[in-house]
């Protein structure tokens, strides 16, 4: 299994789309690694620098409908090759969410109130996901909180199998 902990990058906006995560002009790359420098390149947020801010992040915390738009799995791979294996959001677009689990990565949904709390604790936030207990442990310099989430058994099996291809190849 992949690593599901680390320092968080807080993206304070809903409806961040896959074109913002990885612009279409990079879809001509035929390797995942080649996408690495272009993470979140077209995301415009106050104070956010796509060159600087994703560097040390291993978890993303954001608002509602994350990953909407295109079906491009490149939006998941660009996180994967930047060692970001967890996105925590109020909600996800369907295809992006499925792509995360299909790659053995985590798309965790928390309530709007819990997401608010995470933003209040930020910006220097460390996140650790406990998949067995279904909890997110968030730590800042001054506080520590635990949030509960739920994952269905199939999503967990995909993560354990390392993704949908490995799972499906064995089963079907």
């Amino acid at each position: 299994m992949k690593k599901f902990s680390g320092s968080a990058l807080l993206l304070d906006r809903s409806d961040i789309n896959t074109d913002e995560i990885i612009p279409a002009k990079y879809l001509t790359e035929n390797s995942k690694l080649a996408l690495k420098p272009y993470i979140l390149e077209d995301l415009k947020l106050d104070g956010f620098d796509p060159q600087r801010d994703p560097q040390k992040a291993e978890v993303i915390v954001t608002r509602a409908n994350f990953g909407c738009g295109s079906s491009r799995e490149h939006a998941v791979w660009v996180f994967e090759v930047n060692d970001i294996n967890v996105v925590i959001a109020e909600s996800f677009a369907r295809i992006f969410r499925q792509n995360m689990f299909n790659c053995g990565m985590l798309a965790i949904e928390l309530s709007a109130a819990d997401i608010d709390s995470l933003f209040e604790m930020g910006p220097d936030l460390h996140i650790a996901v406990n998949l067995d207990k279904e909890t997110v442990l968030a730590e800042s310099a001054t506080s520590q909180r635990t949030f509960a989430f739920t994952l269905n058994s199939f999503d967990k099996e995909l993560v354990a199998a390392g993704g949908w291809l490995a799972y499906a190849d064995k089963k079907y």
């Binding site: 079906s71 491009r72 799995e73 998941v76 369907r94 295809i95 992006f96 499925q98 792509n99 299909n102 790659c103 199939f154 993704g163 949908w164 291809l165 499906a168 190849d169 079907y172």
Partner: peptide
């Protein structure tokens, strides 16, 4: 339905896809 590349791979290989 639109899907990502992993779903597409499994579709090509096995002719199946998972949906909620």
């Amino acid at each position: 339905a639109g899907v990502g590349t992993t779903d597409l791979e499994v579709g090509i290989l096995k002719g199946v896809c998972s949906f909620r």
